[in-house]
Design a protein around this nucleic acid. Structure first.
Length: 483
DNA sequence: ATGTGC
């Protein structure tokens, strides 16, 4: 298959590039790349642009196949990708959502400032590491079986709150209120449920983490005030997803769809794009299972928040130890949404894989305090760099179906990173810079080294300048807990 | 990402 080169790419604006449908005759829509020229040059040799073109052949795809500036290669679809298909008969594809269904990020804000915790960073890292189970295959203390598991899958974060893992007020500050109503536990295999039995309240491994950060800079006073963020404030970021349960849901339905595709006459350039019509039996079952796994992930992040709050209270006491949920976003999910395409309102199935929803002001789901400034977008950087809070914009609807990037984006494969990085040395270097890492393995540290990632500042500048999200605050890591 | 692999 013909490889994408710079010659095939047309410049639409300084930050938007297009591979037209003339590039390959199976493309149904153009492929668009949101990137600075520097970022584009860095990814041009990557397989991710060919994956982006492949996505443009997805049955029922509308307007354009899109990637954000943090794009990199994924299973079938690129990570950092957005694809909207027509409702109700366009494709739904598990590869367009990812194995870690509802991988996402939440941010908790504290009433503490840098000066309040400067001396406690190491103890804080040890306490968090002790309270929050992490690592590959790791389970926690909580067990959910049969009816209780079904309740978790039905009710998401709400189940956690009901069991005492958090405040009722938390729910308003979660995307979709931490619950997708289409979830149907009967569409989730017993194997998936078994894998999820003891994994609520656990981080997992890879790029997942719990991190204590300090707000280093505020860019937009009005939004920062609405979100309750201010300079020198200590905040906590949680990044994880649906663990083994979501992974098993993806595995189960990818196999089902590979087998069902011929029946619907679907031919694709890569079998990793396996998909079926959204309104087919297989499509509906997957969607209901995906919603259930998404609910599990929201419940997981809810329970981890409870663990973090416990650690916080242990160290700082009841009065100073309060943590408020600022927001929780999903970045591996598909949603049915209404968007304007060619001037007409259309219902579409938006696949976001390593992409964050970034809805602008006046979106009715937002809590009252946020409605005038738009939805918070949380962008974790890599371990030793920094992260960002942005605000969604109305402009994002026109360009990216109301989506934004989800992180810095990998630059090196895990294997390449392991070859280049001496993890014990890196850990010590970060410590000298005042960043304390508590990790279960040196392998994990090497794979997640800052050098393995793109520069988060240039990724965020791209989305900020192109107007799909607005910079609100920059935060800097102090303590990182990883698997 | 994942009881790291058909």
């Amino acid at each position: 298959m013909q490889k994408v080169t710079k010659e095939h790419i047309e410049k639409l604006t300084d930050y938007l590039w297009e591979i037209p449908t003339s590039f390959r005759k199976d493309m149904l829509v153009p492929a668009r790349i949101l990137a600075s020229e520097q970022i584009l040059d860095d990814i041009i040799e990557d397989r991710s642009l060919n994956q982006l073109v492949n996505v443009a052949t997805l049955p029922g795809i509308r307007k354009a196949s899109l990637v954000m500036p943090d794009v990199h290669e994924g299973y079938g679809f690129p990570i950092g990708g957005v694809a909207a298909t027509s409702y109700p008969d366009g494709a739904i594809s598990p590869g367009g959502i990812g194995y870690d269904i509802n991988c996402g990020v939440r941010l908790l804000t504290s009433s503490l400032k840098m000066k309040d915790i400067k001396e406690d960073l190491e103890a804080l890292g040890k306490e968090l590491y002790a309270k929050i189970p992490s690592g590959m295959g790791k389970g926690g203390q909580i067990r959910v079986f049969s009816e209780q598991m079904d309740e978790v899958l039905h009710r998401g974060a709400e189940w956690g709150v009901k069991q005492g893992y958090g405040h009722k007020d938390d729910l308003a500050y979660i995307e979709s209120k931490g619950r997708l109503a289409w979830a149907d536990p009967s569409c989730v295999s017993q194997m998936a449920k078994n894998r999820g039995t003891d994994q609520l309240g656990t981080i997992g491994s890879g790029n997942h983490f719990v991190e204590v950060d300090v707000v280093e800079e505020i860019y937009d006073n009005e939004s920062a005030k609405a979100y309750g963020l201010h300079k020198n404030q200590i905040v906590v970021m949680i990044h994880t997803g649906s663990r083994g349960l979501g992974h098993q849901v993806a595995t189960d339905y990818i196999r089902i769809m590979i087998n069902a595709m011929q029946k619907y006459g679907i031919k694709l350039p890569d079998r990793e794009l396996a998909c079926v019509p959204f309104n087919s039996e297989e499509g509906q079952n997957y969607f209901k299972a995906m919603c259930a796994a998404a609910n599990y992930a929201w419940c997981n992040r809810q329970i981890i928040s409870w663990e973090v709050r416990n650690a916080w209270e242990t160290l700082f006491g009841k009065e100073k130890g309060q943590l408020r949920l600022m927001y929780d976003v999903a970045h591996n999910i598909a949603k049915v949404e209404d968007h304007v395409i060619n001037g007409k309102n259309e219902r579409v199935i938006v696949h976001r894989k390593g992409a964050t929803r970034a809805f602008g002001p006046n979106f009715e789901e937002l809590p009252d305090a946020y409605i005038a400034v738009g939805q918070p977008v949380i962008i974790p950087g890599s371990m030793g760099t920094c992260s960002y809070v942005l605000a969604g914009t109305t402009k994002s609807y026109d360009i990216t179906f109301g989506s934004c990037c989800h992180g810095a984006g990998r630059r090196l494969s895990r294997t390449a990173a392991k070859k280049q990085v001496n993890a014990p040395v890196l850990k010590e270097q970060l410590r000298e810079r005042g960043i304390f890492i508590e990790a279960g393995s040196f392998k994990g540290i090497a794979e997640e080294a800052p050098i393995a990632y793109k520069d988060v500042n240039s990724v965020v500048d791209t989305v900020n300048i192109s107007g799909i999200a607005k910079k609100v605050a920059k935060i800097k890591p102090l303590v990182v807990v990883k698997g």
